[in-house]
Design a protein around this nucleic acid. Sequence first.
DNA 1: TAAGTAATTTACCGCAAGGTAAGTTCCGCA
DNA 2: TGCGGAACTTACCTTGCGGTAAATTACTTA
Lengths: 215, 215
Amino acid sequence: MATPRSKAGTKGVPRQHRQQQILAAATEEFGTRGYAAASLAAVADRVGVTKTLLHQYFGTKEDLYLACLVPVGDRLLDTIRTAMGRDGATAHTPLRVLQSIFTALEGQREAWFVLYDTSLPAGGAAARRAAEYWSAIDDLAADGTADLLRAAGSGDPLDADALMYVWRDLVATLVRWWIKHPDQSPEAMTRRCARLFAAAAALTPGPAGPPEPLG
Amino acid sequence: MATPRSKAGTKGVPRQHRQQQILAAATEEFGTRGYAAASLAAVADRVGVTKTLLHQYFGTKEDLYLACLVPVGDRLLDTIRTAMGRDGATAHTPLRVLQSIFTALEGQREAWFVLYDTSLPAGGAAARRAAEYWSAIDDLAADGTADLLRAAGSGDPLDADALMYVWRDLVATLVRWWIKHPDQSPEAMTRRCARLFAAAAALTPGPAGPPEPLG
DNA sequence: TAAGTAATTTACCGCAAGGTAAGTTCCGCA
DNA sequence: TGCGGAACTTACCTTGCGGTAAATTACTTA
């Protein structure tokens, strides 16, 4: 054996296991900093490995991002689909969807933001794939919000678009708050959301336009 | 005159005017890309000027960011303060605040995101200043949401924190949607928000906990 | 018309990040 | 015991960015 002159050489970690470690670290890094601000060196450091290994296992930065994105996107899309069920949305649907998202995200909460990264290289494969997930999820959300808006009596298509937009960002917001409160279980989060919805509904003025002259 | 060998030299634009141009471009760039992803070269290009000039007029990147932040922060803080008035929040307060924000932001909608940039260099003067604005605005929002939550019957402090968090991000979301629909006037946005609030309230299940077993 | 100053660029430095080629160590196995 | 492949690093290249010193052009005024 005799005093290794270099730190190179295997550490006995099989490739598959290492890849899993890297994916976990990269997902967290991409999720918290965003694609552009995330650095491969940081991911490598976190795993205790060199940048080069990431490239050998996953290719370019964008490839690594894709490797993080796909499982997360598939998992979330699937979970939301089943939570929405086959029939139109009811008043219970939002909470059911939230609960399913919280559950799917437990253990890797930052993953949500991997899906909705805004700093991806324009025109790249990553951006294209992420856009596919968005539109798939947005379609589901659009169905739901449209159902609900119709039930509430509004037909304005821009209203529907805005409501979908708000709903999508609301999910992101709740997940962000959740990340800041790591002790909260998915179930506790769901219950909290239910309370918040109820509170918000209770304090909103009537269905007519602005309640004041708004000067 | 005789064929200038270099493009250096004044273009006849007075310093103050140039500074205004730079501030506008930088605010937009910081607001859309975020501090970390924003590049000084891009700002300079937009103005039709060299990177160096930005440094000579504003100092470092962080200094330039600060020069963008301060007027925006002051304007928004002021507008929100007066919109909230002296007495506690009522059900009309959220819409009044939104309207005041939309109005203050018209002509430079991305400015909102300059205020809430998450990629500032930690420990720097910019981050400190931005944090001051946050906490000032958050204090106002906390007062408001606390008033409203109390009226709705919830006393959980974490609920209050989450609601404030949601409210703050809701504003950001609405502004973001607004940016994607440039033709919408501040008044139209306010009316739309009123409709959305009403719709959301109408379709939310009762004030008790989750309406289903949530399996 | 020459001096002085304001506005602006050119040309550079250092650094960090993504990315690659080639080498080094360790383990299983004939 | 020695060979082959798997796991991992060293050393390097390139690019883009923040940042600075020095030069260059144009406007003003005595």
